[in-house]
Nucleic acid binder design. Structure first.
Lengths: 348, 348
DNA sequence: AATGCGTGTGAGATCGATCTCACATTGTCT
DNA sequence: AGACAATGTGAGATCGATCTCACACGCATT
């Protein structure tokens, strides 16, 4: 704990030079004492430490970073912090970063490639080495390729990019989607709708693939009229759901690819007077706090959110401080949490 | 847009020196051309710009910062990014910061004073000037006082601190709470419970005060048995609610001071078999997505969340770039959103 | 006495961008 | 012709921390 004496307060922060002068040694010696390397006399070291304490010396991380070429900051580029999924991940990364005396810069790409590129460039010009990115696009990833070629530690989360060989942490999207659809099929559903966001997005494509495979495996031909695409916001999802269920022969069940879309579907059903699970069954990808507050509670495919950020941060710090090693690709399993939003369908 | 030619990729970023050498001028001239100040010949400037373009010069913000004493980064210390209230604010600040070519560092104080202090110190040693803080404590604010004395731009959000004269953005907590309680009283309730978090926290105290005043104004004596205190998490709120409603004479209505506690109360009522609004009426402070998904929908005191972050960021940039001006204290009004969780009480 | 090593210290270069100062040119005015 | 501005440019200092190098001194070994 520090004490601040009056009159000392408005001072500029003490520099190493100040400390050295106060302890009557050179800057070099002061640095040696404070960072404990090289030879320093015991008594001298003592004097330097006292001086540093006295002056409240904290060091200028900027100058340090300029010298050694990197700033102890992790750059984190996510889709949107407002998505609870990313918020949780960001929080976990921050905690782990703090433990390693790193700070965390968070940027939102808002799912725009251009924004992702410019954010990354901006952070690189800050000499930040060490990024955790949820890549927006699967193509045009020269900016990520460049990072890797420059040997900048990089961990991708939530989404994996083809042809980029680097650490990544994601979940088994296809398997998760397949489990959901298989369950719906087992409950007697055959006309199963899919509410999906931009196919540019990796997770969305994988979940679509799981959806299709499960149908085909059960001998059901995928039908484009059962699929509705919208942006991943509650509002857009409402419209897309309404479109899907205004057809002459609507689906008897719906699978939504993320929690915002699940919420949209819920609202759409309410406004259309469609009741769950009586009129339609629903499964969402990604658990969310609301899912257990509704009546009935919503069956979801849950991801181990708490492990994703943690794993990503661990991988990153391994790269930052450990020796070079081949990239690791982590995939977590998902879990189907059966609650009350799916009912058995007896007739077709 | 840049193009990256092969073989050029793994290079270290180009420095001003490189650009100068390439354009056959001194570093000083190159700097003048790129930052357009002082006298530079037209043709020389042209050459420098071409060289910069060619080499992909981006400048080292670290070196710039070291020189001019500050980094174009805003430090943002919040209670927790996982709280949607703060997530929204962080998002809005980030957008505005990006517009001003600033980046945003987010730190979680986790409502620990010590953590807030150490985060702030860490960010200051990065030469960051410009903070937006949701202060944890009302006392022991020497760290904030020091910032102000050092003339570091600071904006407090959500909470105001006594005796600190600086910009702040908050809402009318007392008025909001009063409106809620007055409405409950008007609906015939007299035994009104309060579910509150740590009284250390500013907003909590103000909301308590509004609660008490409304009661007194209506001639009802505040009763400590109607108040339950817990940490602001869903789990703690559940326990606190159960305690409150296990009394012989439980409240007929409950007012919760934030959205996490409202959720906790909701879960507690469900587990106790207490139905809303039949058995008990409920009003929460702070609107949240879940509030309209429950049946009945929850009546809340809504804050203009989207304006808080915006206003805070605006104030901060005024201070960062504009001339000195007296501190501004902004207080937004709250709005009672009447939905379905309050019923009229006929007998006492 | 000469050489060598272990220990302790300081002067100065370095990281990259910027800014002050001094020095050139040119042109213009008495 | 001489003086003085306006214009253009470069050398070097600066920000703060760190690291290399060189130089001390003492003590032990040949």
């Amino acid at each position: 704990m520090h004490t601040f004496e009056k009159g000392e307060m408005a001072q500029k922060p003490a520099t190493l030079k100040d400390v050295a002068a106060f302890a009557n040694v050179s800057r070099a010696t002061a640095a040696r004492a404070l960072n404990s390397y090289g030879y320093v006399g015991d008594e001298t070291a003592q004097r330097v430490h006292e001086a540093a304490e006295k002056l409240g010396y904290r060091g200028n991380r900027l100058a340090q970073a300029l010298r050694n070429g990197q700033l102890p900051i992790i750059g984190c580029i996510l889709g949107d912090i407002q998505n609870p999924f990313f918020a949780r991940i960001a929080h976990d990364i921050e905690v782990l970063a703090r433990g390693n005396r790193y700070n965390l810069i968070i940027g939102s790409s808002e799912e725009e490639l251009e924004q992702e590129v410019s954010l990354l460039a901006s952070l690189q010009s800050l000499s930040i080495r060490g990024f955790i990115v949820a890549p927006t696009s699967d193509e045009n990833n020269f900016h990520l390729v460049r990072l890797i070629e420059e040997n900048v530690p990089l961990v991708l989360i939530d989404r994996v990019v083809q042809g980029i060989d680097c650490d990544s942490v994601a979940v088994d999207n296809e398997g998760g989607a397949r489990k959901a659809i298989e369950y719906l099929i087992a409950m007697g559903h055959r006309r199963i709708g899919l509410l999906q966001d931009d196919t540019r997005i990796f997770t969305s494509r994988e979940r679509l693939s799981g959806y299709q495979r499960a149908l085909i495996a059960a001998g059901i031909t995928p039908d484009d009229r059962m699929i509705s695409i919208s942006q991943s916001t509650v509002e857009h999802a409402i419209d897309a759901t309404i479109r899907l269920f205004s057809q002459k022969i609507p689906p008897t069940a719906l699978f939504t690819v993320d929690s915002l879309m699940t919420q949209g579907a819920l609202l759409a059903f309410r406004s259309m007077g469609i009741s769950i699970p009586h009129d339609v069954s629903l499964i969402g990808f990604d658990d969310f706090n609301l899912a257990t507050f509704t009546d009935p509670q919503i069956t979801v495919v849950a991801q181990p959110v708490s492990e994703i950020g943690l794993a990503a941060a661990r991988l990153l710090f391994e790269k930052l401080s450990g020796p070079s090693r081949p990239p690791k690709q982590i995939r977590f399993e998902t879990k189907l949490l059966v609650r009350g939003s799916v009912s058995r369908r007896t007739e077709g």
